[in-house]
């Protein structure tokens, strides 16, 4: 899309804002609407925007398909791993109270870890599905 300067420049300016806003949604989820799922989708939207404007070849150079697939799995592992950590610290599965001396601090850490897992999974899944759809040229004319 070499002749579409408007799109390229505008996208370049906007993508950092979208990523920053996704982080805001992620960490502001305790206080307002938002959370891991929404933040993951917004992250994926920014990445899909990049892939649309600069071509999926460049997008694959930034983040190969293997990495994206791995993201989908790693997020679930973060989530489940949080549960096992709480078990190791003497609580029950996903009981965040034991993560810190103060139970409410433990809840904070646990929720942040879990939401991070959700974010990573959702980002990976959305981008993987986009790759699967967009990378597949129609075979019959």
């Amino acid at each position: 899309m070499d002749d579409l300067v408007v799109l390229r420049v505008g996208t370049k300016i906007l993508i950092p804002f979208i990523l920053l806003f996704a982080l805001y949604v992620q960490f502001h989820g305790d206080y307002g609407p938002g959370g891991g799922f929404q933040a993951g989708v917004i992250f994926a939207a920014a990445y899909v925007l990049y892939a649309l404007v600069f071509g999926i070849g460049n997008a694959l150079r930034v983040m190969p398909a293997k990495v994206v697939y791995a993201c989908g799995a790693v997020g679930v592992m973060i989530f489940v791993g949080t549960g096992f950590v709480t078990m190791g610290l003497g609580g029950v599965f996903l009981d965040y109270n034991v993560l810190a001396h103060e139970p409410s601090h433990g809840q904070h850490y646990g929720i942040i870890a879990v939401e991070l897992g959700v974010l990573v999974t959702v980002f990976g899944v959305m981008v993987a599905i986009f790759y699967a759809f967009a990378g597949r040229r129609r075979l019959d004319p």
Partner: peptide
């Protein structure tokens, strides 16, 4: 939980 958004606390905790 001590976070203001009840939706988040229900979902995650």
């Amino acid at each position: 939980i001590e976070i203001p958004n009840v939706v988040t606390s229900v979902l995650s905790s």
